[in-house]
Design a protein around this nucleic acid. Structure first.
Lengths: 342, 342
DNA sequence: AAATGAACCGAAAAGGTTTTCTGGAACGCT
DNA sequence: AGCGTTCCAGAAAACCTTTTCGGTTCATTT
């Protein structure tokens, strides 16, 4: 018997095989397996047993061909390497994987030509929708309105306001970061951040200033833009301490910068968090938990961004199209580098 | 015209539509578009123009249904979050994406049930093959021989020697690391590494000892196993320096550990690399470039592992099945933390 | 002029599933 | 007995593309 039904040798069983084994027509077999009502219980069981014995698995291609929907979506990332894409991708995969939807992964490597190529390939495979994941929060060109399936942009919003984009709320992130520092009793807060060419850097700075202004305060000096590296964090901190030795908090544009900041603070004899509180952005586990003390950081909830994008795409496929940019809140993860001023 | 051919409103164009617009039969249209020879040049051009105007894209479902091959493969990762999966995934996506193959991404989250579920779903979609990516190099259970399509295991080999697995050569990695330190004139080499429950940790230590033995030398003390963290790197270094203050090199089981090691070395007044050379494993950019001095590290060539797995799967789909565990060489990336002893 | 061959095009089938429609059987009612 | 109703199963169409095979046209050769 094992030989007769050995699935590794033969082609996968088809519904016709199941029907023949059960002694019914393919139509009846289909109805039996899909729980339709026009089948006698005894017949249904016979079909189910036959399907089991043949380890029958419906051919989704044939099903999709007929139904018009394939139960697949395309996940188009512009930069797989970037650490921001991965959590979004996980969230989306999670939201889809729970249902009966499979995800095509494509990496365009930041190349518009390659992206176009992937879109065409995905449309040829009749995906039901697309999620476009960017590697930074700056707006990106739209795929265009003539794409015949719904598209949702995640992390990097589309330039076309008619598209739907799901992004983290960078302004709000800057605001809640400062709120936390204020709650810790800090008032002389400096901001060392990354490349001003990044919208995220500018928006976080904007949010931080706005929250300070609401409290009747201001940043110590201007925000110090630079690059996203520990080295810049170290250099900027040295300059900062020369000009303003009396700061009691440094809000850093990224965890990497924060790590550099903390190193220089410690070398110069400032205690963290007793004298100076330090905060980062991104909540990058490997950095926050390895630093001494562990780093308080703002998490962008990227998995949630991915899940929200997946759900939005679901909705759009079902006909409920939205548009515009939807910003999701971030959250402060408190660790040892911030504490109330005693 | 824009309205009449607006693809966003209507269903995607079918070959029938193209044929009708070109005034030929579907068969001729198919032949014209696929470059078959039985079509007059003028007719072919008319069909191509029609396809262009309708932005026709062959339905891969119908094509796959007929051909028996779908041009899709499943990429089954056990842990998307893990940083080792991503480069492998990139390499595989790269190798496939270049051709006409699309990749289904599935994340099992280390759960065997979920993995089984994904395999069934992928088989239902009639993938032509599977790549199973592990999160660590320890052998993992096989999917079983009754899977009706070729399977290639990447990074984590299958326990079944009849399966084909592509892994990095961890023993060789340990060996080339020591070879580099020896070439730098170091002879008093200690080894601080991670969790001994990881095969990678044990194999790297094995390779290191073997290379030392070939040179008539031995490690300073036993390999110090612990956990994969900076904290362990710091603690182990403190103990090491107490017992063996005269070491001239530390080979670390990971870049994280190396970072902790370097911090303590510097704090204790040992210069890197003048007094003590330090090496890590994994070549994790964010750590190697941020440390002072930049860290020499062994790169596992994971993208290449992914590409090799993809090519092996290609071959297996075409009928050339291999089996066993194939180990790919790693490479030393030299940076500032190692230098010749002057 | 007739026959041969070449070049070209179209009808039809195949691939696997779902759905609609039709037919048949059993059963209850008048 | 005749009729209507309900329930169940099967036939056939539809989805879209590719390929095979048969048929038509036209130029060339005898």
């Amino acid at each position: 018997m094992a030989q007769a039904t050995d699935p590794s040798r033969s082609q996968p069983a088809t519904l016709t095989d199941v029907a023949r084994l059960a002694g019914v027509s393919v139509a009846t077999a289909s109805k039996a397996l899909n729980g339709r009502s026009q089948v006698r219980a005894e017949t249904r069981q016979r079909v189910i047993d036959a399907a089991e014995r043949l380890s029958f698995r419906p051919n989704q291609l044939a099903r999709g061909l007929l139904a018009g929907r394939t139960g697949t979506v395309g996940l188009l990332t512009s930069d797989l390497e970037g650490r921001f894409s991965i959590p979004i991708l996980m969230g989306a995969e999670d939201a889809f994987g729970a249902g009966a939807v499979a995800v095509f992964l494509c990496d365009a490597r930041g190349d518009a030509i390659r992206e176009q190529h992937h879109v065409r390939a995905l449309l040829g495979r009749r995906v039901d929708g697309l999620i476009v994941v960017g590697s930074r929060t700056d707006p990106r060109p739209s795929l265009g309105r003539e794409v015949p399936v719904p598209v949702v942009y995640a992390y990097a919003p589309s330039e076309d306001p008619a598209d739907l984009s799901i992004v983290p709320d960078s302004v709000g992130a800057g605001r809640i970061a400062v709120d936390h520092l204020l709650a810790c009793g800090r008032s002389k807060i400096a901001h060392i951040t990354g490349d001003p060419g990044y919208l995220a850097a500018r928006e976080r700075a904007l949010g931080a200033r706005s929250a300070l202004a609401d409290a009747g305060l201001a940043l110590v000096g201007e925000p110090r833009f630079g690059v996203w590296s520990e080295g810049w964090g170290r250099a900027a901190t040295a300059m900062l301490l020369d000009q303003h030795p009396d700061i009691d908090a440094v809000l850093c544009g990224s965890d990497q910068i924060a790590r550099g900041v903390m190193d220089v603070l410690r070398e110069r004899g400032h205690r963290v968090p007793e004298d100076v509180a330090v905060m980062g952005f991104d909540n990058w586990q490997i950095l926050t938990s390895a630093s001494r003390p562990p780093l308080t950081s703002v998490d962008m909830n990227l998995e949630q961004v991915g899940r929200a994008a997946a759900h939005a795409l679901f909705g759009a496929i079902a006909g409920a199209r939205r548009s515009g940019v939807e910003a999701l809140p971030c959250r402060v993860v408190i660790r040892g580098s911030t504490a109330p001023l005693s």
